[in-house]
Design a protein around this nucleic acid. Structure first.
Lengths: 139, 139
DNA sequence: GCAATAACTGACAAAATTGTTAGTGATCAA
DNA sequence: TTGATCACTAACAATTTTGTCAGTTATTGC
């Protein structure tokens, strides 16, 4: 449980007020979350299906990650009628569905550079490129 | 320092091999990283400028976050000639520049729902909707 | 009666991240 | 000589995240 008096908590909250970027990042941070959202978007919408897809996750941890995603309204749980024992379906909300293409773009971005795209310093950013970098001794 | 024998480390590595989405998320996770990348993209490219923008971050923590961003080649450090003491400029690489619009889209996504966009379960995903055709690529 | 199933929860331990404190070197201004 | 600046680093403590183990509910099949 979070300590509401910790510096870490206070810093996190202040970042959340600066920009939603920071709360968005915190919602998708977490060992398995991005992959879980992706798998659900692909139709693996049951607990045991997610376990099959992620053979190294434990039940406890999967349940915890799903609950956090639910807390952030990225998904909802629904009981499946007439199943024994009662089955649960994990369903992406519109918020979760909207997240998927952003995760895809993160994926492409990572892949591009992992696949060898040259990493360079754009010309306009180089030291000496603009007048702002005038060397000036302190005070 | 990471323990290379831990379950956590092994799980992280296996997620990295499943999809670059997971390494991308880990590169931007971290209390201050998204905001730092944004501020640098806005021209706050010096250590002390970032400190001004983030008054609650300590020098140690800022240095650490910058070093991690450098490790992932999102930015590079360059000495500014003829400055005393020697100034350092933080420069986004092309990889870092490409990340900025993705962070922006995370920001918009977060803001949309924080500002009150209704959260609903899309009709085609509701329990009882017709059996979904399961398309599933490798990831 | 016993095991199997689906989907969990609580308590705790291990590990990782974040924050704190103290210190560095070179240079200049007072 | 003292103090200020810039941009750090090392060592350690606090906090958070992740993983592990045991147990739960309700039903059905053998």
């Amino acid at each position: 449980m979070r300590k509401k008096e910790s510096t870490d908590y206070a810093n996190e909250q202040s970042l959340f007020t600066i920009c939603e970027r920071n709360s968005a990042i915190s919602m998708i941070s977490g060992r398995w979350k991005g992959q879980i959202v992706y798998y659900i978007s692909q139709g693996n919408d049951r607990f045991h299906l997610l376990q099959q897809k992620l053979p190294n996750i434990s039940e406890t941890v999967l349940a915890r990650q799903l609950k956090e995603l639910e807390t952030h309204a990225i998904l909802v749980k629904r009981e499946i009628p007439n199943t024994v024992p009662t089955g649960i379906k994990y369903i992406l909300t519109n918020k979760g569905v909207d997240l998927v293409p952003i995760l895809d773009s993160l994926c492409s971005w990572g892949k591009l550079y992992a696949d060898g795209k040259k990493i360079v310093v754009p010309a306009e950013n180089r030291v000496g490129a603009n007048a702002k970098a005038v060397a000036k001794p302190v005070s």
